[in-house]
Amino acid sequence: MTSTAELTVPLGRRRAYWPAVVCLAVLLGALYLAHRHWAAVESGAVRLAVADQGWLLVGATAAAGTWAASALAQQGAVLRRLPGARLVAAQFAASAANHLLPAGVGAGAVNLRFLMRCGLPAGRSASALAVKATSGAAVRLALLALLTPACPGLLRLPPVSPVAVAVALGVAVLVAVLPAVPLWPRCRRALTAVLADIRAVHACPARAAALWGGSLAFAALHALVLISVTQAVALPLAPLQVALLYLAASSAAALLPTPGGLGSLDAALALALTASGTSAAAAASAVLGYRLLTMWLPLLPGLLVLGVLVRRKAL
C-alpha cells in the first residue's frame, strides 16, 4: 500500500519543476534572439570595447555602491543592529547567488540564513526580507510615477484588450473568494506579521530612514550604472530617459523567474532602448556593459565571498 509520504514527494518535485521549466524557456528564448540578432550583438561588443573608460569607471563604482545600499535597506528592515562588514559581504554574496537560482531565491536564501545567524528567528528573518522587498517595489513604483511625466511619450503602454480586462476581473474574483481557501489563514498570518514588522520599523525613525534610503539608493545606483554605460558608448538619450527605461524594463523583467533576470532583463532593456529610437547595435552595447558591471565581473568574487562566509559560519 502506498503511503502518503510516497505520494507527496513526487507531487512536491513536480511543483518544483515549473520554475526551472520557465527559467529554461526564457533562457532558450534569449539565446534564440541573440543568435537571430548576432550581428547587432557583435557590433555592440565592439562598440563597448572602445567606450569611454571614465564613464565605465563611474558605472563600476555605482555597481559596487548597490551592495552597500542593499545592506542599508536590510538593516532598516530589522530593529536589531547587524554587524556592518558582514552585512555588506552578505549582500555581495547574495547578489552572486541570485545569478544562479531563479526568482531571487539565491539572494533570499543567503539573506535569510545571515539574519538567522545574527540571532533573528526564522519567522522574523522572513518578515524582514518581505519588508525590504516591499519597500523596494514601492520605491520603484514611486520613481516610475515621478519620471514618467518628466519624459512624455517615452513609455508607450499597450492598448487594453477585453481579454486583459476579463483576466483582471477574474483575479479580483479569486482574491474576493480567497478566505474560503484553506491556505488563506496561513497567508493572512504571514501578512499580519509583515505588517507588524513594518509598523515596528517605522516607529524608529532611524530604521525607517535606512530602509527607504537604502531602497531608493539601490534603485538609483542601478539606474546610474546603465546611465554611465550609455554615456560611455555615446547613446543619444538623456539620463532621466535612461533611468525611466531601466525602471520600466527591470520591473517587467521581475515577472519572469530567471536567475538574476538573465535573459528577461537583457531582452527587456534592449527592447526598451530600441523602442526609444536607439539602434540595435547601440542598445546591445549598453546592455552588455550594464551586465558586465553588475553581473559578470562581480560573479566570481561574490561566489568566493559566499564560500568564505559559509566556512566562517556567518551563513
Rank of each mutant, 00 (worst) to 15 (best):
A180N: 02
G170E: 00
P159C: 13
A176F: 12
L144I: 14
V173G: 10
A206V: 15
R188G: 05
P205N: 11
L154F: 05
A176V: 09
A208K: 05
V177D: 04
R199L: 05
V177T: 13
A210Q: 15
L157N: 01
V175S: 03
A208D: 00
R186V: 14
L154C: 02
T148H: 07
A145M: 14
V173K: 07
C187N: 02
P162M: 12
L169Q: 10
V201K: 00
A190T: 15
L183F: 08
A208H: 06
L191S: 08
V177S: 04
A166D: 06
V194D: 00
A210L: 15
A193D: 02
S161C: 01
A176W: 15
L191P: 05
V160N: 01
V194W: 06
P152V: 10
L141W: 15
L195N: 02
L146R: 03
P152E: 04
A145L: 15
A210I: 14
G153D: 02
L141T: 15
H202E: 08
P182E: 12
A180V: 10
A200G: 00
A142W: 14
L141I: 15
L144H: 02
L174H: 06
A142N: 05
R188L: 12
G170Q: 00
L183A: 10
R207K: 15
L178Q: 08
A142P: 10
V181I: 09
R188W: 13
V167D: 00
L146G: 03
A208Q: 03
L143G: 01
L141N: 07
L191G: 11
D197N: 14
V201T: 01
C204Y: 06
P185Q: 10
A168G: 05
A208N: 01
A180K: 09
P149N: 09
L157Y: 05
L141K: 13
S161E: 03
T192F: 11
C187R: 08
A180Y: 09
I198A: 03
A150Q: 13
